[in-house]
Amino acid sequence: MNISQSEQFLIAFHNQHPGITSQAYQALSATMGGQCYDSSYACLAKDVARDATVLDLACGDGFLLSLLNAHTLIGVDMSTGELAAAQQRLGNRATLHHSKAQSLPLADQSCDEVLCHMALMLMDQLDKVISEIYRVLRPMGRFSFVIGTAAPASAVMDGYVARLRLLFKHETSKALRLGDPRLAKEQGIISALTPHFSQIKIEKITLSRRYTPAEIWAWFEGCYDLAFLASEQRQQLHDEYLLELAALCEEDGKIEFLDAMLKVTAIAAEPGH
């Protein structure tokens, strides 16, 4: 595999912290379309048919695949650490591949569904990724993915982002730009998918949390941003941010705040259309 700088970072991060994404999201209940689901993973899993062949792209430790009762389960990830965790979780329930999304080791039109949870917005060469997903999907097959989007305004999120931006202005902190900026806006999502997909549907997912300051910090430690900070900057952010959060706590020592995602569903166009 040819590995870019951003992919090297992601591989190293996930090899060091396998399962970190599922640990962050699997216990967070999610509301979508007026319905409550166990997690954002369940928002993807709910539509999968039992007789389907399903590919989980950037499958991580296999948590999403573990929720599915589909006929054939396939996982692809570029982190060997994540794949080892997925193998341990799934055993022989799924076929796992060490590969990149830009060059999938699957035959043309071999999948009924492709799923992706919180990873598409991190990938290089988005157009090539989407072309590969289309290639392995059967005509009228479904591509469903969940990506992050701007969180509702809150002191918890706004305070973290503001402090982080100040630190990134320091020349010792050099964050990588991950993924394609088109996925940051709904119109960009539609334009990226349109060459190969139709019937594009975008739904908002709301995550509700009630955490202590320590739990909030632990959740942010699972995000990529802190990995780009020097140790002294990271400690500074920790100390100042937790002091700020302490003033926001309610009587039980916790703070309630919301986060948001988008679930996107698209149907593979028939050849020639």
Rank of each mutant, 00 (worst) to 15 (best):
K201P: 06
A85Y: 03
I202A: 05
L104Q: 02
T21M: 11
E113T: 15
L258E: 06
K204M: 09
A150E: 15
S6Y: 04
G159R: 01
E250Q: 12
S66F: 03
C249M: 10
L166N: 13
H14C: 10
P213G: 07
G91I: 00
L83I: 00
L28M: 13
D124I: 02
D252G: 06
L65C: 07
T80Q: 15
K201Q: 14
L226Q: 02
H71I: 08
I147P: 00
T206K: 01
L164M: 14
I202M: 04
R93Y: 05
F9V: 05
A24F: 06
M121R: 06
G34A: 08
L44I: 02
D56G: 05
D47G: 11
D225M: 12
E7M: 10
C111D: 04
S131W: 05
M261A: 14
Y41A: 02
L207I: 08
K169F: 10
Q88A: 15
A266R: 01
A107V: 08
D108T: 13
L10V: 09
Q16V: 08
Q233A: 12
Q235T: 13
L28A: 12
E132W: 01
R165H: 13
M121D: 03
H98W: 12
C59S: 08
A30V: 02
E186D: 15
D239F: 05
P271K: 11
A218L: 13
Y211W: 15
Q199L: 12
A30D: 02
A49K: 10
Q35M: 14
L126M: 06
I74F: 09
S4Y: 04
E270T: 12
A84V: 11
R89Y: 03
E250L: 09
